[in-house]
């Protein structure tokens, strides 16, 4: 199935060379309107329920903080909400990026060998192994995180084993520690890092690697100078797909951590749903988004021109 879907001759772009375009019922006038009609409902949905809400969130972050949900909020250009929120909750924001960053490093250490082994060493087991990689996504996010709670619990076999070999103090625990939260984050988002990385490794031409070996490069040098640069687009896509949800996650911190491990998501959740302090929740949301967006732009700018497969969709 080497379907070489070659770009068709440029003729189809010029209506004159294309009789079908002027067939009755499909006149040139209609053809110009058609794409707009097709994208209109989807664009309207995104503008109404993605764009407009962001504007509203921005407005909410500038509400007068003395208002409340019951008495009504007043829009007041209250930029002070941002430094106020930052002053109180900077540890949570720092923890979000700290834990997500640690989880990312761990995920890279685990995911790179995995993607490499599946792409270049798995042979006929490749598809089965790929299914194993996405298997965690097949069960519910919350259910599999609760399974970690079981595994890491104080009465569990893992804690017992670690205490027996003195890797853990007799009263030491795994649950409600930063370690548990980072482990959970790594676990839950690892497939998102491995898949794009695998895709770009699988696509690379093995003969290039053989050439490096034939030219007396040792494995490390081959990896650093040939494999890694060729896999970079997949690596960047994987890092983004991992880091964006990991830094905004608060399920792992809630289920596997304690209030000492709470991330910015936990604070935002309680600001909107428990404490009903909308201006503060909105300001923190924007701080999170700005930080994430900054990261995305920086990473993509560094790899511009190489095209990251996950983020530019099928635009080939």
């Amino acid at each position: 199935m080497t379907d070489r879907s070659a770009p068709s001759p440029a003729s189809h772009r010029t209506p004159a060379a294309r009789p079908a375009a002027s067939v009755p019922g499909g006149g040139p006038g209609r053809r110009r309107v058609l794409p707009y009609l097709l994208v209109l409902p989807g664009v309207a949905w995104l503008v109404l329920f993605f764009g407009l809400p962001l504007v509203q969130l921005a407005a909410a972050s500038l509400y007068d903080p003395t208002g409340s949900l019951s008495t009504g909020y007043v829009f007041a250009w209250a930029f002070g909400n941002y430094p106020d929120a930052l002053a109180t909750y900077w540890p949570h924001l720092a923890r979000s990026f700290g834990y997500a960053g640690l989880a990312l490093l761990l995920a890279l250490a685990l995911g790179c060998p995995l993607a490499y082994a599946i792409a270049l060493r798995a042979g006929r087991w490749r598809n089965l192994l790929l299914v194993c990689v996405v298997a965690p996504m097949f069960t519910s996010f919350l259910v599999r995180t609760l399974a970690w709670k079981t595994i890491l619990s104080d009465q569990g076999w893992l804690v017992g084993l670690l205490r027996d070999v003195h890797l853990l103090a007799p009263d030491g625990r795994l649950l409600a520690t930063p370690f548990a939260v980072v482990l959970g984050l790594t676990y839950n988002f690892l497939p998102l890092l491995v898949l794009p990385l695998y895709a770009s490794l699988e696509r690379l031409d093995r003969r290039v690697l053989e050439a490096a070996t034939d030219l007396y490069a040792d494995p490390l040098r081959t990896f650093l100078t040939v494999t890694l640069p060729l896999a970079k687009p997949g690596l960047v896509a994987g890092v983004l797909l991992f880091f964006i949800p990991a830094s905004g996650d608060y399920i792992n911190a809630e289920l596997l951590g304690s209030p000492n491990e709470y991330m910015v998501g936990n604070v935002i959740d309680s600001a909107f749903l428990v404490r009903l302090d909308h201006p503060q929740g909105a300001a923190l949301s924007f701080l999170l988004m700005a930080a994430v967006l900054g990261l995305v732009v920086t990473l993509l700018r560094h790899t511009r021109g190489e095209g990251s497969p996950a983020l530019d969709g099928g635009a080939r």
Partner: peptide, 26 residues
């Protein structure tokens, strides 16, 4: 429009949730 479609995927889910909440409340 191609970019608009990709933006929600690059936005933290948390922000998608809170911004819609802000809209529905307003």
């Amino acid at each position: 429009i191609g970019l608009l479609v990709l933006l929600p995927m690059a936005t933290p889910e948390l922000v998608l949730g809170t911004s819609l909440l802000a809209l529905f409340v307003a």
